[in-house]
């Protein structure tokens, strides 16, 4: 099959970008979207042009590196699928496909389709952990955890940090990402101890990165490759409200 590709090309963060049009011929329907781009890059290299830069690593939907908006939808918009697992058989022969980077102030473009998502790391650094140091942990079975709680925590913990939620949200909000980590740790007894401090600090970090606000449109949930539920945002709202009331009059730090 053949496709016309409109791909965002931008030399670096300081340059202006623009769309370039490429013809992708001889596409095998069994290719993943990224393998199709690999082939386009091979032909660009053969012509002495610089290949399209994009992030990818595991190519099995778990590392969260790949990040591109395909025809207006992060990862192409197929349910529970990252761009690396999106296969070409889902496209129509002769279709024009537009490929753009994640668009958000907090995710500046580094080059072409690559953006800087280190804001997510800084949010985790602000509080997305349990403050235990190596050594001295008690036996793993000392605190029983109800199975439904463990399952719910796992639902949230599955987040791969790809940023599709931010890319999809009309406000470029990172609430689903933050909610997933806050919920994962607040549901488990090990993380509950410092849950108030954690949620206050993570939200503060989120705000300072310049993400937008949640208006509950649900687009984040719809494009999330791990199908993280919007309910976790409700939980985050609740956790923050409780932490806010408890911290009244006392410094959070």
């Amino acid at each position: 099959m053949k496709l016309t590709l409109k791909v965002w090309r931008q030399k670096d963060g300081d340059s202006r970008g623009e769309f370039a049009t490429y013809q992708a011929n001889d596409i095998n329907p069994d290719m993943s979207f990224l393998e199709m781009l690999d082939e386009v890059n091979e032909s660009l290299l053969a012509r002495g042009e610089e290949p399209i830069a994009f992030d990818s690593d595991c190519r099995e939907g778990i590392c969260g590196a790949c990040s591109m908006v395909i025809n207006g939808l992060p990862h192409g918009g197929r349910k529970a699928t990252t761009a690396c697992q999106l296969h070409m058989r889902l496209f129509e022969d002769g279709e024009t496909v537009t490929v753009e980077p994640w668009r958000a102030r907090a995710f500046p473009v580094v080059r072409d389709l690559i953006v800087d998502r280190s804001g997510f790391d800084r949010i985790i650094q602000a509080g997305g952990f349990v403050s235990v140091s190596t050594g001295g942990a008690q036996d793993a079975n000392v605190i029983p955890i109800p199975k439904p709680d463990a399952e719910l925590a796992m639902d949230a913990a599955q987040c791969i940090g790809c940023g599709a939620c931010v890319a999809a949200c009309k406000n470029a909000s990172a609430m689903l990402f933050v909610a997933a980590k806050v919920s994962h740790l607040a549901i488990l007894p090990q993380g509950r101890v410092e849950k108030n401090r954690r949620v206050l600090r993570m939200v503060e970090a989120m705000d300072s990165e310049g993400f937008g606000n949640c208006t509950v449109t649900g687009s984040c949930e719809a494009v999330c490759p791990k199908e993280i539920s919007l309910n976790f945002i409700t939980r985050l709202n609740q956790e923050y409200a409780v932490a806010l009331l408890k911290s009244t009059g006392q410094s959070a730090r």
Partner: peptide, 11 residues
């Protein structure tokens, strides 16, 4: 803004 606007799920 995105060149292609597609909204998903949002009412």
């Amino acid at each position: 803004a995105y060149a292609v606007q597609a909204s998903i799920s949002a009412s």
